[in-house]
Design a protein around this nucleic acid. Structure first.
Lengths: 215, 215
DNA sequence: GTCTATAGCAGGATAGAC
DNA sequence: GTCTATCCTGCTATAGAC
């Protein structure tokens, strides 16, 4: 009876197909016809279930993106282990692990970050939803975890910049997958993803002021 | 007689306005009418000068984006100084400086990276243009500069990942400006940009395996 | 809740006058 | 080279049958 089981319901299928298409092409490049065809239902279904196209888009974030982001954060938490204070190394690794391997399929992960990047560029209504609901709290939690372990005298702002930089990498290696493959010549196999996790961890780590621990 | 002087020519105005609008909203969200209105010329001008909308888009990359990218790389080179072998620190700083302060206005820099990110997400014709023409050669030059200075035994691939990570940050702090401001509470003033350059340099640096030089 | 049919409009593109 | 007028396609959205 979980959400995935409802895939036979028209409304759920619409959300699934809409998310895929919006992620692939962007809001304006996708027509309602395209979505309803993919979902094997009638053109009018979008307006019946969601009122209009824009609302369907927002509902994709509410009903799909945000819950997935929560799962991602759960995965991060679990990967860190229940322990109290985490080392910067553990935080960096858990972050890279959750976002690059984590609890979802390759296709789902790609979709997730494509949508995010599309929103990050401009300030739309969907970003508002996401920003206060899941991004900010997560950032704050990360900052609270990292701050005590960082070199003393490091202001909150610098900690924030460190966190943003980790996100920048995680985001980039997910959404710019095509360019990364083109440049490195490597497909996103299990092995390469493991290597990316390794790389991001190390790259982040020394940036966190614990370079001495490295060797 | 430079290109900027030609802004009174319809064709040049079209390229300028098209680039701004495409960067702001994405290809599909912008209509030819919108572009010709902004350029204060007739609807038919796009088809007269460029054949069709898609071609105008590609021409924006050929005639605006790529030359600007070249100027950016020149700025990077100049910022490094003519010296032969550059230290990783010098490279990281010059890169951050060129991309975050560099030779262009804030608005132009934003436009430039917005367009890039829109293209990085999917594999379009415009990306083909850019990838082989300016991205790959620049990456290669960076790799050649950095490789000898990195810890021995560090493979070419890892050097590439380091470079990609620097690009990830530079890209992120440019195109996700809205989100960064939202999270840090800081506008992109001269002071904040200087801080970002500092941050990216340090963050990149220790990731480049020279953490010992830091303090 | 799902369908067909269609209204109503905005889009890209072109023909042809000037 | 720039304009107006117009074609035609494809879009979102809705009305109303089932």
């Amino acid at each position: 009876m979980s959400k995935a089981d409802n895939h036979d319901l028209t409304k759920e299928r619409l959300l699934d197909e809409a998310e895929t298409l919006f992620a692939q092409k962007g809001y304006d490049a996708v027509s309602v016809r395209e979505i309803t065809n993919a979902a094997r239902c009638n053109l009018a279904a979008v307006n019946y279930h969601f009122g209009n196209k824009k609302n369907l888009y927002l509902e994709v974030f509410r009903a799909r993106w945000i819950p997935r982001s929560r799962r991602l954060q759960e995965s991060f938490k679990k990967s860190l282990g229940g322990a109290g204070a985490a080392s910067p190394r553990a935080v960096a690794r858990a972050l890279a692990e959750a976002f690059l391997v984590g609890p979802m399929s390759d296709e789902e992960r790609f979709r997730h970050h494509q949508l995010m990047v599309r929103e990050l560029g401009q300030s739309t209504e969907a970003l508002e939803l996401v920003a206060d609901d899941v991004m900010r709290p997560f950032m704050k939690r990360l900052a609270d975890m990292l701050h005590p372990a960082m070199p003393e005298g490091l202001g909150k702002e610098r900690v924030l910049l460190h966190i943003l930089s980790m996100f920048a990498m995680v985001l980039y290696f997910n959404f710019a997958r095509g360019a990364v493959t083109r440049i490195t010549g490597r497909e996103y196999t299990k092995a390469f993803k493991a290597r990316l996790v390794e790389h991001i961890t190390e790259f982040s780590l020394t940036g966190l002021g614990v370079g001495e621990d490295l060797h």
